[in-house]
Nucleic acid binder design. Structure first.
Length: 289
DNA sequence: GTCCAGGTGAGTG
DNA sequence: CACTCACATGGA
């Protein structure tokens, strides 16, 4: 039973240039944070529910959260990658990347659960973000564990679920998984679950590998190609030296980089710039889609 | 009805 | 290698 006291939220003073939770939750790296007033965002980290709002008064940004100060220090700061320095010198000539970085300032690359990230991005292929969110929600409601919450303060009716374990998914019959609307990705998800559940694929052990080897190992899975592998490496394994290329990024490369991009310009953080670009083209350039 | 979505695997040359 | 093509599903 998780106890949440919304009458007495924790206040965190932090500028939006360092952490902007709206951009961070909305930039396509995570699928299980939802916005709902009065606490704009609600989500699950390591099986626990957190509410977060970002406000401003007298020119000072701050966050209100259901997390305790202790949880902020020990869990959320790591989750939001707060300690990392995101300053990066981009060559003056790289106008697009500079604009994208300005527009996306405040985005953090989250430290998300690897297993959840793997399944989420297998589901993401050839799919749109609202639908991805929807199917992942269904998946969690059907096969995750319900998180029991007791509220103090304003009562909420939402139910929250943990992300289903590999063991749980590995045991599903094909008719069960086909009810989730995954389409042809059914077999990819089942296969990944069985590989992980059997120990054939040890996600923890992959942490020790260099990025190239990590990508290679991920791509041994059915349904995991270069793009999904890069996303899992970036958003799950926190490899900021990756650079996932999807249709949007490819469009950027074709339009603004004459068909090829040199990610060495982005030093040790191409993944961060990639995320700025993704957010920029979808939300900044033409008002988004 | 058609088109598209944070792609991939299989088949072909 | 590079290049096609089918692939389930649901919303616009």
């Amino acid at each position: 039973m998780q106890y949440i006291d919304l009458s007495n939220p924790t206040r965190i003073d932090i500028p939006k240039d360092i952490l902007d939770i709206h951009k961070t939750f909305d930039c396509g790296q995570c699928f299980r944070w939802d916005s709902q007033p009065p606490y704009q965002w609600e989500g699950v980290i390591n099986g626990k529910v957190y509410y977060m709002a970002q406000l401003n008064s007298d020119g000072a940004d701050y966050i209100l959260t259901s997390a305790s100060m202790n949880e902020w220090n020990n869990i959320l700061k790591l989750y939001f990658d707060i300690e990392a320095n995101y300053d990066i010198d981009i060559p003056k000539s790289d106008y697009f990347a500079i604009q994208a970085s300005k527009f996306g300032k405040g985005i953090r690359i989250l430290n998300q659960d690897i297993w959840e990230t793997l399944i989420s991005f297998i589901i993401s292929q050839r799919n749109n973000i609202p639908k991805i969110k929807g199917t992942i929600r269904k998946l969690c409601e059907a096969y995750g564990d319900k998180i029991e919450i007791e509220h103090k303060g304003s009562k909420r009716s939402n139910n929250f679920y943990s992300f289903p374990t590999a063991n749980k998914l590995a045991g599903l019959e094909s008719y069960e998984i086909s009810e989730l609307g995954l389409g042809y990705r059914d077999e990819y998800v089942l296969n990944a679950a069985r590989e992980v559940d059997s120990g054939n694929l040890d996600l923890e052990k992959l942490k020790q590998l260099g990025t190239d080897e990590l990508l290679y190992n991920l791509m041994q899975l059915k349904g995991v190609g270069p793009k999904v592998a890069n996303c899992v490496a970036l958003f799950g394994f926190h490899r900021l030296d990756t650079f996932p290329i999807d249709v949007w990024i490819q469009r950027i490369i074709d339009t603004y980089y004459n068909g090829s991009i040199d990610i060495k310009n982005y030093k040790d953080k191409p993944g961060l710039i990639q995320q700025y670009m993704f957010y920029y083209i979808k939300n900044g350039l033409t008002g988004g889609n």
